[in-house]
């Protein structure tokens, strides 16, 4: 278990009323925004279970849109986000569903940008902490507690050590490394969490040397 900080107990400073349903929703939005990394044109948001049932009253819908637009959890804009100029830039629709196979606070996104479409699933797991659980068809676990590289590679021997070499060469410590692939020889997705910050040049180097199908550098949302 990750060590708790006193700052986790006496914060976040946030727009109310609920850490999981409001602050968590904003963080999910922010995380999705970082993963999508392109201007969002259109987004369909499917809220499940508790998020669907009590989400409107907790401003879950407002929080998600505010996050997608880049507002932080303590923004006073969240309350009136639907009436803001910023919100007119995105076409959004909400759907509400019940599913006992999904987390109580689960949400799916189908996002269209200028040149890409993505399906991303996330959930709010309590106390404002969040997880992205699926990107397109790939199971992931991104909690935004440290900076993370998400990379999808052709599954061939040595690809991972190539990446870790580049990271190590830049004197950055890897906090955790998870790789997942559906079948042998198919694409594998790796999540590499690091202590500290990676600069864009390092990401570019990884891109050039490994030619990934997908790569994102997602910054942490927590202090």
């Amino acid at each position: 278990m990750q060590e708790k900080s006193i700052l986790d107990i006496i914060s976040p400073i946030m727009a109310g009323p609920s850490s999981s349903h409001t602050a968590g929703a904003v963080r999910i939005g922010l995380l999705i925004r970082n993963i999508f990394a392109q201007e969002i044109k259109r987004v369909k948001i499917i809220l499940y279970n508790s998020y669907a049932q009590t989400g409107t009253g907790h401003g879950t819908d407002k929080g998600i849109i505010a996050g997608l637009l880049g507002f932080s959890v303590d923004s006073t804009k969240i309350k009136d986000i639907f009436n803001s100029i910023e919100a007119t830039k995105i076409k959004y629709t909400f759907e509400y569903q019940d599913s006992f196979t999904r987390h109580p606070n689960a949400v799916d996104f189908i996002i269209e940008g200028t040149s890409q479409t993505m399906e991303i699933s996330a959930q709010s797991v309590g106390g404002g902490e969040v997880q992205v659980t699926k990107i397109n068809d790939i199971d992931v676990n991104i909690n935004a507690k440290s900076d993370t590289i998400i990379i999808t590679l052709c599954d061939k021997p040595g690809a991972i050590s190539q990446i870790t070499d580049i990271i190590q060469k830049n004197n950055i410590n890897i906090a955790s490394l998870n790789c997942n692939r559906k079948t042998k020889g198919q694409n594998a997705t790796c999540l590499i969490s690091v202590d500290g910050v990676i600069n864009q040049a390092v990401i570019e180097e990884i891109k050039q040397k490994t030619n990934p199908a997908f790569i994102r550098y997602v910054k942490k949302l927590f202090q």
Partner: peptide
């Protein structure tokens, strides 16, 4: 009340107990 209005508060330890 400010919390329930979606105002800015410090969760301590949670928003409901702020």
């Amino acid at each position: 009340e400010e919390n329930a209005r979606m105002g800015r508060i410090a969760a301590c330890p949670t928003a409901g107990a702020c």
